[in-house]
Design a protein around this nucleic acid. Sequence first.
DNA 1: AATTCATGCTGCC
DNA 2: TGGCAGCCCTGAAT
Length: 460
Amino acid sequence: MVTGENRNRQCLQEPFVRSLSSYHFHGSSSPFDRRITCLEWHPTHPTTLAAATKGGDILMLNYTNPTKESFFQGNGAGDSIGGMKFCPTDFSKVYLASGEGTLTLKSFEGHPSTLLSRTGDCDHDYHNVCFRFRDLGNHQVSWVLFGSCRSQQRVPAGQCQLTGQTVTEHLEGEPAAVRTLLRRLKGCLGVFQAEAHHTGWIFSDKLHRAKVTHAEFNPRYDWLLATASVDHTVKLWDLRNLKDKKSFLYELPHEKAVNSAYFNPSDCSKLLTTDQNDQIRVYASCDWTKPQQIIQHPHRQFQHLTPIKATWHPIYDLIVAGRYPDDRICTGDEKTIDIFDSNSGELVFQLYDPVASGIKSVNKFSPRGDVIGSGMGVTLLLWDHDESLLGDGQKPQEEMPTSSGLSRGQRRSQQRSSRDRKGSAADAKLKKKLASLEETETKTKTGCTKQKPAQTKRKK
DNA sequence: AATTCATGCTGCC
DNA sequence: TGGCAGCCCTGAAT
């Protein structure tokens, strides 16, 4: 099982983990008026990333080049972005799944957006939609969207009703693969719809007993689909044999609702799940029936926090997750970004900077694995070590204010007039933050406890 | 310093 | 199975 390639990776992982101690807060940007829900790194450009929010705002940012920044304002309440992916055939575009029940292809270069799918009329206000991409080869891509409709009544609450839809995009030519898939799916999924540029199916059956929070294809075996749900389970499905809600391959029961289930990018044989309380689990394909690792990690659910999802490092067997301190689990914690070794389950490093003191719900390593992008409330953060980003390595934190600052003023006033939110205080605050960063920067390194329960740290 | 707002999950009827 | 009260208890603006 341990291939040469694996061994190599493991040898390199150790120096990488050591290098984490030189990581620190690089900068922040907060042009948003609602919490960040999604963060995606550009597939090839190492300093470009996109972030999306609960209000449908989208930001594409190249933090080394402030002029290369695009911001798009969403529709506000309800336009929550549940999933975002760069278009695999054109990196200047992203796919967006919105709580309004739409799937759109959005261009960052001024081209008009394409509406690919809209969930049917169902007397519900919101759809919490998430989606995942699947590559069918031959220029064919397929998306699976899942959503829970929220009934109208009062704004909060509501029973969740799951809908699912597969959208296959006809990118080019006459797609034999699409027809095959169509034949496969048509028989087992309820309503069939066909439109000009896509084909969609609505599942007639619920796949879970409650909201589906996350769905993901295995990058290697594209028929393998993982779904996570608030019904306390993760389910693995074979898309080729999807008949009804009982036709899952495996059901992975959890103690609490589950926020996410990610396959590991290095060999796609493991599944990383994050529940809504204190467990991060690692499952391995050799035995899906029980977790290989249960890591205790406080990240409980709270209504006004973006759900915390642990994610993989692109190369090494490492996991990143934001900590939401919980005295019932461990006292004296800071709101750190934690990095675990997925094989041993050990906490190998914690990132923390008092300048960015909130809970970092969303954390993702860049494709090269040398930068971490974080979503802390409405603020986008970056963590790295000096050398990787800026030639002089002198005052890297100055880079971010410029990069986001240029258009932020205009943008904010736009937002304010349209929605009357997000006052200028944010700007001042950010400036204050960044000013104070200069003093605190040296403290950063020592501010991170390297050992497990971080007991030594005083609370507040 | 105190208040308001945004709006998810669970258990019970 | 659907509706709703009660609870989880942050972060930013006012």
